[in-house]
């Protein structure tokens, strides 16, 4: 696929052109950090915080989504589809996460039409990370801060200009009229890539983890690992791949509608039967479910682990639980099992 050099001016022009006819969203400055918002000018883009506080999953799977309104006879009316949207400056970990969600919602079994039509209308322009945050660990899972998975176009800042690499045809179309990248830039980019990758020191044997996790189901370690968990669900809401939802009806001034809202397997009501019986009554069983889901269940369901190493669950946890320590602990137990 095509790779080009884009100067700052050219990037500004490109974005201005896009903003004039499509909804463009990007990380902007918010409360001392970055978060996603619709932008009307390229100046609003804020990429200094490494990553946005919230992941990009809401763009294809909103926190609260109208599934249908009901007319006065109770017949459902489906809302109109969204307009084309561009996510500018999405990080490679978050783009990978959208790929996991797409696989789960669209490609596995029955397709979810709401997610599907959002995916079709979304273009992802990624920005490679040239530095990492203390909670980043994508490389520890075998991914890279320069990955292109899930993206349409990847930008990498190389000494004041941007290397733009098309990943899909959608991305390539954006690069018309730009000059191709030369060897020097590509070499410099390779150096930047190895430098940023070296900032992440952990290495997790993910294959080993997913292979052995089923045997750890009844292990007492879950009790210990979940001791400080307060079941707030912040980890799951901020996780870029968590996809659980609740379906709920609302009636206001005689008008009814059905929505879906994000839900969390960390809540006790999540799995409680109408009879009161609850298969995951203990906090530890819910903590275990989340870890099992990230590194084992989704590999069975869609062939991918559903942790991308973005680190949001680490920075958001009010109890200071660090998924890297959990994974390391589980791997230590697995290594000890053979002995």
């Amino acid at each position: 696929m095509k790779a080009c050099i884009v100067t700052r001016n050219e990037l500004t022009q490109l974005l201005d052109r896009l903003i004039s006819h499509v909804d463009v969203y990007a990380p902007v400055r918010e409360k001392g950090t970055a978060n996603w918002a619709k932008i009307s000018s390229v100046d609003e883009v804020y990429l200094e915080a490494v990553n946005s506080r919230e992941p990009a999953k809401g763009f294809i799977f909103p926190r609260c989504e109208l599934l249908m309104r009901f007319d006065k006879n109770g017949n459902p009316i489906v809302p109109a589809p969204i307009q084309e949207q561009i996510l500018f400056g999405i990080r490679p970990c978050d783009a990978r996460a959208l790929k996991v969600l797409e696989r789960f919602f669209v490609q596995d079994g029955k397709s979810d039409p709401y997610v599907q039509r959002r995916v079709e209308k979304t273009t992802l322009i990624g920005m490679a990370c040239n530095r990492t945050a203390p909670t980043c660990f994508c490389f520890a899972l075998g991914n890279s801060p320069h990955d292109t998975e899930g993206l349409d176009l990847l930008l990498t800042e190389v000494e004041g200009v941007f290397l733009a690499e098309a990943v899909t045809e959608k991305g390539e179309k954006l690069l018309a009229d730009l000059s191709p990248a030369d060897e020097t830039v590509l070499r410099k980019r390779a150096a930047l890539k190895s430098k940023v990758e070296s900032e992440i020191n952990e290495r997790f044997d993910v294959k080993k983890l997913q292979g052995k996790l089923p045997q750890l189901f009844k292990h007492e370690v879950w009790e210990v690992l979940s001791l400080s968990c307060v079941n707030c669900g912040a980890c799951t809401f901020l996780c870029p791949t968590c996809h659980c939802f609740d379906v709920t009806d609302e009636t206001m001034r005689g008008k009814s509608a059905r929505y879906r809202v994000w839900d969390s397997c960390q809540f006790t009501l999540y799995s409680r039967h109408a009879s009161g019986h609850n298969p995951r009554f203990d906090s530890s069983s819910r903590y275990r479910n989340r870890m099992m889901d990230k590194f084992y269940y989704t590999t069975e369901q869609v062939g991918l682990i559903s942790c991308v190493g973005c680190g949001r669950c680490i920075s958001a946890c009010p109890a200071g639980i660090d998924i890297r320590q959990t994974v390391a602990k589980l791997l230590r137990i697995i290594d000890g099992m053979g002995k």
Binding site: G109, D112, H243, C244, V247, D263, C265, Y270, D293, Y297
Partner: peptide, 8 residues
């Protein structure tokens, strides 16, 4: 349809 997660 295997999307909402609850019944796993």
């Amino acid at each position: 349809i295997g999307k909402c997660g609850h019944c796993n």
